[in-house]
């Protein structure tokens, strides 16, 4: 409603306003940046608590160090960007920027609440999946362009892991699509609200697969093999400094945010139980925040999994399980029908 009136005042069509606001305000960039800042702070605070530490504190003692990330960001913004002589200059500089851009595109079709979306498509799941799979390509190119052995090995690991993770993600998404008989997020949420059973209950296997694939694709801790600090320094991002390094750090969190939104929509009932735009949006946001907080909490529990074991885990355990999830999805679809 607000949107329609705003469009009238600004003399622009409603769809254009939607297409502008969704990727740039909510669920896109503006909310995204705030979420990333909060998430990194929360991650550090939670890990600190488990580890009997205090965590970031002295930047703003009254806010328990919440401004630490802003201080870090200012520092990154003012730092010189070093591009060493052996790099492929163009790709080196474009790499993080392109990756970040690709990763903000899914927010055009990811709904952030009832009626809050950029474009509504019958194939929004496929579009989100396709746009998310673009980013590893540029990450691999970053590893190549850095002309550094550690970065190169990191790029190779990214290639290996992306392949295994994305198959699992695709199977998880497919089983949800089969379950609700749609490839649209909005319809999927509406189906969940209609039946009153969230996806997590009706197809827990798919939810587990989606969550694990999400951890892998976003380099969360048991699977942060691409970053691999103890072997390959910072993986494909080893040579970056300044703002570009801040962007590479943000990549994983942006991906995590996008995938958590998708997880919320597919398995946690989206904006249920609310139907008004504002409450619905808050519901979606809080649910996905909980998913994100849990996935960053795992940093305090696990170490890094071995590369071959992670590959084995995904191909030999989760991939067959994906077909089980798909079969379960089809079965549930029949029951719903």
């Amino acid at each position: 409603m607000v949107l329609v009136e705003l469009a009238k005042i600004l003399h622009v069509p409603v769809w254009a306003l939607r297409g502008f606001l969704a990727p740039l305000v909510y669920p896109g960039l503006a909310v995204l940046l705030g979420t990333v800042l909060f998430l990194i702070w929360a991650e550090r605070k939670m890990a600190a608590r488990v580890q009997q530490r205090v965590g970031p504190y002295y930047v703003s003692p009254k806010l328990h160090g919440a401004l630490q990330l802003i201080a870090d960001g200012a520092r990154f913004a003012l730092q010189e960007i070093i591009v060493h002589i052996e790099t492929d200059r163009l790709m080196f500089i474009l790499g993080p920027i392109l990756t970040f851009t690709f990763l903000t595109l899914p927010f055009t079709v990811l709904p952030g609440g009832p009626g809050i979306y950029g474009f509504r498509s019958d194939f929004s799941m496929v579009i989100v999946y396709a746009l998310l799979t673009l980013s590893p390509i540029t990450v691999i190119l970053m590893g190549w362009a850095s002309s550094n052995k550690f970065a190169m090995i990191g790029g190779g690991r990214e290639a290996l892991l992306t392949v295994s993770g994305e198959i699992t993600l695709a199977l998880a998404m497919l089983s949800v699509a089969a379950m609700y008989g749609t490839l649209d997020f909005v319809t999927a949420v509406e189906k969940q609200m209609h039946t009153g059973i969230i996806g997590l209950v009706s197809n827990p296997i798919a939810a587990l697969l989606f969550f694990l694939a999400m951890l892998l694709l976003t380099d969360r801790v048991p699977f942060d093999i691409v970053l691999g600090e103890q072997e390959i320094v910072q993986g494909p991002y080893t040579e970056y400094s300044g703002v570009l390094y801040a962007l590479t750090m943000a990549i994983d969190y942006v991906k995590l945010y996008a995938l958590s939104l998708a997880f919320t929509l597919l398995f946690l009932g989206g904006w249920a139980p609310f139907t008004t735009p504002l409450l619905g949006a808050i519901s979606v946001y809080i649910k996905s925040l909980i998913v994100m907080l849990f996935s960053v909490f795992l940093r305090a529990v696990y170490g890094r999994m071995k590369l071959d074991q992670a590959m084995n885990f995904f191909w030999a355990r989760l991939f067959p399980l994906g077909f089980v999830a798909l079969a379960l999805g089809v079965f549930v679809h029949v029951i719903y029908a």
Partner: peptide, 8 residues
């Protein structure tokens, strides 16, 4: 341990 106090 998330609920315990830090030793700092």
């Amino acid at each position: 341990w998330l609920t315990r106090k830090p030793m700092t």
